[in-house]
Design a protein around this nucleic acid. Structure first.
Lengths: 229, 229
DNA sequence: TTTTAACCTGACCAAACGGTCAAGATAAAT
DNA sequence: ATTTATCTTGACCGTTTGGTCAGGTTAAAA
């Protein structure tokens, strides 16, 4: 980082300094919280709740450990806060699975949204994996209400498509689990895929090809050809 | 367990007691090691390497903590030993994917073997998931040699099928990742599936149906109909 | 019976853990 | 200029952690 860039960066960052009211303090708070949250997401994603340490979070966030506890009272509070963010993003992807239009279009859109989420926020996906593997101690209520309600409603939509003869008579839950599994695999097992790919992360082209293959196999697998219903 | 069964069981287990040489000591060693290994597999699967504690392993194995260290010098040695077992079982399932016979028969056999492994040894699958999520610190060499060699050889087999026009022209790695993801999902995310299934583990019938659905969707998805090549 | 080798474990240790706190630094309000 | 509220952090605390060890018990060998 050159001195010129530093100067430019400082100008940007400090532009709120002389603003009215306590804008500077608020900006400091926001920046520190974001720093800590980003670090915590990584550490929790790597080690799970029990294995993660506040010291490591502080180290990555580049703040003293005591400062972590100033912004987030306990390790658990920090964990829950991050889980909320992860759930929000999941819900956003879930909303792409509406019950309008053509089944093939909807399924394709949903699979692509889930694949993109795995690419954009792999730490969130891995955090979720930890949470479930450990027995969903923090989130079983959320799963048994919000997520289950959504899933059951999508199963009904799929059953409707089956009844209308638009696709094969497959068990909708099995299909949904396959979509969950395959799309999240690209985040959760990203390191394994990277090793198979000669220790290189998937390029944008490779990932796009993988996404297209996932869509093709699943759509054809349930009897949905995209040209016409 | 009735007293008759208990008696029968004791006869079996203790039959080596008065045998020649140090058979009793050997039996004690074997039983304790098995107890500790089984407990460790569960605890490591729940919490990962860092999150797991030797105290918890000892508690579940019903031996004093010092005894765990008598049989396995360090936590890491115990972890590596269990990883070996997991890899052995994976290799066994991998061997069902040979390059003889009909593609549909082979793929079906491999998917079913992986599904059965997820059902029979969910802890091993979850342990593997932890290991990969954390960055494959202990097993990257194993993956980049043994597993990668096997995977690359299977990709060549699949490419052969594609060249012979036996199945659609899909990217073989994408297909393999889908099989890994979907089959392991039934172990790694078993708790989530259980919640969706009204807090009941999948029954044998439900699991068999899921297995059949996975096979059907994937085979059809890559253009393999099972009646004839 | 005596000796020897293996097994067992309560008590302990240094290091790492989540969390606290007092005292100082900074910036907004008066 | 002074007060007030927020932000910062080194030092600390009680607990848990992986690991050790001396002294004991048990069973095989002599």
């Amino acid at each position: 980082m050159t001195s010129i860039q530093s100067g430019a960066k400082r100008d940007m960052e400090m532009s709120t300094k002389p603003a009215a009211n306590g804008a500077h303090k608020a900006a400091i708070r926001q920046e520190n919280e974001e720093q800590i949250l980003a670090a915590a997401e990584r550490v929790f994603a790597d080690y799970g709740f029990k294995g993660a340490t506040t010291a490591r979070i502080a180290e990555i966030a580049k703040v003293p450990k005591a400062n972590v506890h100033y912004y987030f009272s306990t390790k658990e509070a920090l964990y829950r806060r991050i889980m909320e963010d992860v759930c929000d993003h999941w819900l956003e992807a879930a909303m792409t699975f509406d019950n309008s239009a053509d089944p093939a279009v909807i399924l394709r859109g949903y699979i692509e949204a889930k694949m993109d989420l795995s690419r954009a926020r792999p730490y969130g996906s891995r955090l979720w994996a930890h949470e479930i593997i450990r027995g969903a101690k923090f989130s079983s209520e959320y799963i048994s209400t919000t997520v289950k309600d959504w899933l059951d409603s999508r199963v009904i939509v799929i059953k409707g498509w089956i009844d209308e003869g638009k696709m094969d008579d497959i068990e909708p839950y099995s299909l949904m689990y396959m979509i969950f599994a395959t799309t999240q695999h690209y985040a959760d097992f990203g390191r394994q895929i990277e090793i198979f790919n000669n220790d290189q992360p998937l390029s944008e082209e490779q990932f796009a090809e993988a996404k297209e293959n996932v869509v093709r196999i699943i759509l054809k697998g349930v009897g949905l050809n995209e040209t016409h219903p």
